[in-house]
Design a protein around this nucleic acid. Sequence first.
DNA 1: AAAGCTTTATTTGGATACCAATCGCATGGC
DNA 2: GCCATGCGATTGGTATCCAAATAAAGCTTT
Lengths: 221, 221
Amino acid sequence: MSQDAPKVDTSLSDGVYARVRDLLREGELVPGQRVSEADICSRFNVSRTPAREAIHRLLNEGFLTAGSGGRPVVAEIDIDRAEEIYDMREAVECLAARLAAKRARTNDLLDLRRILDEQRDGCENEVDFLEINDRFHGCIYRISGNRYVQRTASILLVSAGMIRGSTQGQYNYDSWSLSEHEAIYRAIENGDSAAAEEAMRRHTRNGRFQRIALITNQKER
Amino acid sequence: MSQDAPKVDTSLSDGVYARVRDLLREGELVPGQRVSEADICSRFNVSRTPAREAIHRLLNEGFLTAGSGGRPVVAEIDIDRAEEIYDMREAVECLAARLAAKRARTNDLLDLRRILDEQRDGCENEVDFLEINDRFHGCIYRISGNRYVQRTASILLVSAGMIRGSTQGQYNYDSWSLSEHEAIYRAIENGDSAAAEEAMRRHTRNGRFQRIALITNQKER
DNA sequence: AAAGCTTTATTTGGATACCAATCGCATGGC
DNA sequence: GCCATGCGATTGGTATCCAAATAAAGCTTT
């Protein structure tokens, strides 16, 4: 019915990549931890080839970094890296919002509306919120129609989620997110790209300062 | 002596990746052309392992796309893709310029100044120009200090260079680039991030419309 | 006992061989 | 002329093997 055939032909490498990324987001793998090929192989019962490809991709995208001897470790997200992520996120998310406002069709608006309703009604805990938040932003990336935006923004969204990994539980999610999402939606609905960009800028900056403050507090405790 | 040890421990995969990317930029590989593992293996005398990794990375970064049967082909840069590249480039380059204006130190300014002098004095042909242009923009990415900017902007810079591949020879490089680069440099030198961003925006938009126009003309010829 | 050196064990990049699924293409039958 | 079958090419994945680099353990020496 909808025009997007999900194309889940998921090669094994892609699957491993996605699952490791999930482990990172869930905090199952913590910053600084070694991630060896053997780990991945045994954890997912795959051979070295897909494990290597997944690890290389994660390295290339900044989720893992080269530790001593070039061995991959989970990236440490200190304040510097968090600032880099948020600087980049603001630029790319604002672009996504602007493009989405120009290109959104009624189906796209319905998709967004549905996600917002879900956020309003069925967002019980932080895990729910993060999942729905991902869907909302991911939907905007898709609507933007720009493959580079999509790829980069997705990486940054997960990376920002990893910041939360080090500030777990201190993050009250429901107070401000919904109203800001609504504002972004309205701008997109009106086809007002400048307003969409501005609403998204407020949204990302708000998230940014909340997270950065938490990191700072945590570091000084 | 200088603080940047180039760290040319270049794994074979990275080398193959870089060399294929050069082939793409030089137009040695043309859009739509198949790029098989066997091609890469024989061309660079490497085994399938590094060839596969290079190809996967190029696919992931959009230089190659999945053709029929998921087989990699050189990405066709039609107008749609060119628009995507330039939309993204504007966002990321402007961010790079803004950050660079905030972070540039005297050494960084000297680096930029040197590149500009080279562009003024020793820029004989289009190949020279592209090489120097890459260095100028790449230097700004470096100064920005943001790894995500660096990675993404580099990809987009080469991707934009591939647009030129289909409009070769029609592109008069020396008339406007130098003065715009100078404007960007002055803003960075003054630490004026807003001016740097604005100068960079003008620069990318100028390049954008010139290239897009060329593609359009070419298509209609 | 602590510092330093040596040896061993892990780990990764790479090469090679092999297999299965898939797709393109060509040949052949209708 | 058109469709179907089949063969070859390509790719993802597995399994082994090897070399280089590094970490860890153990030994020596003072």
